[in-house]
């Protein structure tokens, strides 16, 4: 049994869970966590293909995605903290300073 199809479907499931989290949840931190889930789904796809094709490049790209995710989380959390200071909320719907 090679598990590649099943693993890819599982990665798609993870991605869809992330998308639903981004759309449904209103808490900024949970939205950020859902984005992390989507990035991890991409990681899983890269590693699964890397293994299936015997090509090591997928590992390199996965490491790059992990580094980018760390940068994204750092900036995202900093923005959450800064916005919470000015708005006293983390509800995404309340962040409409540019709309007004």
């Amino acid at each position: 049994m090679t598990m590649i199809n099943e693993l890819l479907v599982f990665a798609a499931v993870l991605f869809v869970i992330g998308v639903i989290g981004v759309i449904i949840r209103r808490n900024t931190l949970i939205v950020l966590m859902s984005v992390e889930l989507m990035l991890n789904a991409a990681n899983l796809t890269f590693i699964a293909f890397s293994r299936a094709r015997g090509d090591v490049l997928g590992h390199g790209f996965t490491l790059m995605i992990i580094a980018l995710a760390a940068a994204e989380a750092a900036v995202g959390l900093a923005i959450v903290v800064a916005v919470f200071r000015s708005h006293k909320t983390v509800n995404v719907d309340k962040f409409n300073l540019m709309k007004r």
């Binding site: 931190l29 992990i66 959390l77 919470f84 983390v90």
Partner: peptide
């Protein structure tokens, strides 16, 4: 190391600071 040890812990800190 990075996700569980770094990003999750950073999120816990953000919760303490902002929520």
């Amino acid at each position: 190391l990075i996700y569980v040890g770094g990003i999750s812990v950073a999120m816990v800190f953000a919760v303490m600071l902002a929520y």
